[in-house]
Design a protein around this nucleic acid. Structure first.
Length: 114
DNA sequence: GTTATGACGGCAT
DNA sequence: TATGCCGCCATAA
């Protein structure tokens, strides 16, 4: 951890997000001790590499704030998440109630995780 | 050194 | 209920 200590910290948390689960920028920020904006800044600076599952980081309301930077990436993120078993609402937002880390999915929705 | 901006969040109006 | 504004942390110009 030298200059990019925040990169390391934020990336580490994001990397720790299990498949089929998502975290909000603010949530990651609290884990790293940074602000939500700082997390967004880090996500915008993720290496083109797939070493960081940036797609598992969404807005606190489940909305893909990535659309603010590129609508195409928003579609990509959605596909990647769906591929992991993440379900989306009709409004195009992630079902945070079921997939947000630290949140247990309601028993009424018997989702089959792999 | 100061100002502006950003893949955000929460409170206030 | 919906929209807007301010605040937070860090970087770039």
């Amino acid at each position: 951890m030298d200059d990019r200590q925040y990169f390391e910290a934020i990336f580490a948390v994001v990397r720790a997000i299990p498949p089929g689960r998502v975290m909000s920028y603010g949530q990651v920020g609290r884990e790293t001790g940074c602000a939500a904006r700082t997390v967004g800044w880090a996500m915008a600076n993720v290496p083109g590499d797939d070493s960081v599952p940036w797609q598992r980081v969404v807005g606190a309301d489940g909305y893909l704030r990535i659309g603010r930077r590129s609508v195409a990436l928003q579609d990509v993120q959605r596909k990647l998440l769906e591929r992991e078993g993440v379900t989306f609402l009709e409004n195009g937002c992630v079902d945070m109630a079921r997939h947000q880390v630290g949140n247990e999915p309601p028993p009424t929705l018997e989702l089959a995780f792999e």
